[in-house]
């Protein structure tokens, strides 16, 4: 699903990623760990081009999205992202946070379809009559909004926050914000979700509720790439654990092997400190 080939990223003169290769298959749950400053967050942010890579390829569903001529917005719709600091839209209510992207994207597509239909009727009337081309289906605006709202309500119910639909994010606790952020990315029906240290900014007592939601998603077969410091979570959920250090992948292994029988010297040292 995601095929990362020789990914490179510099910030100025500093080389943060020095050629990273990784394959993420459908249903994989890849947990990325590493010491701070190792480039693991940068790596994750390069996956959906939040940071533009300086070299290498990221093949997502058959398209190299590291190529600057690709319309990245189209591909990001299928690639959710959850941030350390939630990044909920402060000027929108909780339900609007969840609905905004699906509605906006659907309305933009609708506009495009209308424009195409208009063009066809005007210039290709003959081809249209002969059935060589056909008009796009155009959904009703209200239907789009209604469907998005129903879906958003369903998602909110799932995380038990249906009574918070009309409040602003600033009134939520950290754990609630992060769960809303997760369902916000779910609202786009992504093929994969990227988690950038989703529990690092949370109070310890709220870490559990967020991890539980992520475990549910894992059970449902969602493909996930997760940067985290939660080793217990990694061991329980991951199908693959990746150790990044000094801008390269030092070790990739299934969790049992990764934690019980690490081979890389730096990884051994790292694990002895954090476990």
């Amino acid at each position: 699903m995601i095929d990362v080939i020789n990914l490179r990223k510099n910030f100025g003169d500093k080389e943060v990623l020095k050629g990273v290769d990784l394959k993420v298959e459908k249903g994989d749950r890849v947990v990325v760990i590493g010491p701070s400053g190792s480039g693991k967050s940068t790596f994750l942010r390069c996956l959906n081009c939040m940071e533009d890579p300086n070299g290498g390829q990221i093949i997502f569903n058959g398209v190299d999205i590291a190529d600057m001529s690709v319309d990245i917005n189209l591909h990001r719709r299928k690639m959710g992202m959850v941030f350390q600091h939630f990044n909920l839209f402060n000027n929108k209510t909780v339900i609007d946070n969840i609905m905004l992207a699906p509605v906006t994207v659907a309305l933009q597509d609708r506009k495009k379809a209308l424009r195409r239909n208009f063009f066809l009727k005007l210039f290709k009337a003959k081809a249209l009559k002969e059935g060589k081309v056909s008009l796009s289906l155009v959904a009703d605006k209200n239907v789009i909004k209604q469907l998005a709202r129903e879906n958003a309500e369903k998602l909110l119910k799932r995380i038990g926050l249906e009574d918070k639909a009309e409040v602003y994010p600033s009134t939520l606790s950290g754990g609630q914000k992060q769960r809303v952020a997760i369902v916000r990315s779910l609202a786009m029906n992504p093929d994969v979700i990227l988690f950038d240290e989703p529990t690092s900014a949370l109070d310890p007592e709220m870490v559990g509720e967020v991890l539980d939601l992520m475990k549910q998603l894992a059970k449902e077969g969602m493909t996930m790439v997760i940067v985290t410091h939660e080793m217990g979570f990694a061991r329980e959920v991951a199908t693959k654990v990746v150790f990044i250090d000094e801008g390269v992948i030092k070790e990739i292994a299934p969790p049992e092997e990764f934690f019980s029988n690490p081979k890389d010297a730096r990884l051994k040292e790292f694990l002895s400190k954090v476990l």
């Binding site: 917005n73 990001r76 941030f83 990044n87 402060n90 906006t104 916000r184």
Partner: peptide
């Protein structure tokens, strides 16, 4: 907060 822009871009806007 730059995170607001990132949040919007991350969902494909």
């Amino acid at each position: 907060d730059p995170g607001q822009m990132e949040g919007g871009r991350s969902v494909g806007l």
